[in-house]
């Protein structure tokens, strides 16, 4: 397994990947920080989904609040990225080429997934650090006190934010991988994934409240957001683990049993 992970890292850890990763993280940091700071309300108890308050921003988790809010919009991006990366392996024949070197198919798929997730985890960490630094730089302009951002509790809040975002990323990654394995074609898998997790889930959930608690995309978004009014963090985590297990099993069974003809 470690060979496959290392091979995936050889492929991904490149200057170009780092530039894209850093640029994307910086853009997310700036946009999220400006959006969160400028929309923060002076009073009230609004949820994270609906915005934030100055009290929250000046609290222990204030330094990474913009990261947590910004990350809630990246789930779908992770989803389509994984669909594209894995489906292209099938349609481009590189998955077949890998199997000629290691025929244990489930191992190859899992090793590849772990390799990409390591890069994703590093990107999330970079995004959180950059968002903290951007928040620190912009805080004076919005009259936000940063004295509470350098405590042990703030480190705990940052780690908690990181963990929920990363868990959501892993969930979206497995979900995207399943679609990529099912369709083995990036355009088809992207079209299906985009239609389902985008318009379908959101439109249905607006008229059917249970959709927020049941649809995989909504559950994963709730997880990344650290829980929402419709679905608490604990329940989102349990449901997400269940969905990830099902999606992972479907992907592994299909990849192990199907003929590799492309």
């Amino acid at each position: 397994m470690s060979r496959l992970v290392r091979a995936e890292l050889i492929r991904l850890v490149r200057r170009r990947t780092f530039v894209v990763m850093a640029a994307g993280s910086l853009l997310l940091s700036v946009v999220a920080t400006v959006a969160v700071f400028s929309s923060a309300q002076t009073t009230g108890t609004v949820t994270r989904q609906g915005g934030t308050t100055l009290a929250i921003l000046e609290g222990h988790g204030g330094g990474t609040e913009a990261f947590a809010v910004g990350a809630s919009f990246t789930g779908f991006l992770v989803f389509v990225t994984f669909i594209a990366l894995i489906a292209t392996e099938f349609s481009g024949g590189t998955f077949r080429a890998l199997l000629l070197r290691d025929p244990r198919r489930a191992r190859v798929l899992v090793g590849k997934l772990i390799g990409i997730l390591i890069v994703a985890a590093a990107t999330v960490a970079l995004a959180e650090v950059l968002t903290f630094l951007v928040s620190l730089a912009l805080a004076p302009a919005y009259d936000i006190s940063t004295s509470g951002w350098f405590s042990i509790e703030s480190v705990g809040a940052a780690l908690s934010n990181y963990a929920t975002v990363l868990a959501g990323v892993v969930g979206w990654a497995i979900y995207g991988t399943m679609l990529a394995v099912i369709f083995r074609s990036a355009p088809v898998a992207l079209a299906v994934g985009f239609a389902w997790a985008g318009p379908f889930e959101n439109i249905v959930s607006r008229s059917w409240g249970a959709g927020y608690r049941l649809f995989p995309g909504q559950v994963l978004d709730s997880l990344i957001e650290g829980g929402t009014a419709e679905l608490g963090l604990a329940r989102a985590a349990v449901t997400a683990v269940l969905y990830a297990a099902i999606a992972g099993a479907v992907a592994l069974i299909l990849v192990s049993r199907r003929d590799v003809t492309a």
Binding site: L4, A7, R11, R16, R96, A97, L98, R101, D102
Partner: peptide, 30 residues
């Protein structure tokens, strides 16, 4: 398979990697 080398259907490599990087990557997998 560790004792077999194969080229089947068409040569499939990662387009953004160089020829040498592709070979190193596949050597690592095997």
């Amino acid at each position: 398979l560790a004792r077999v080398g194969a080229l089947i259907e068409n040569p499939a490599f990662y387009p953004s990697l160089t020829g040498a990087e592709n070979l190193r990557m596949f050597a690592t997998v095997a």
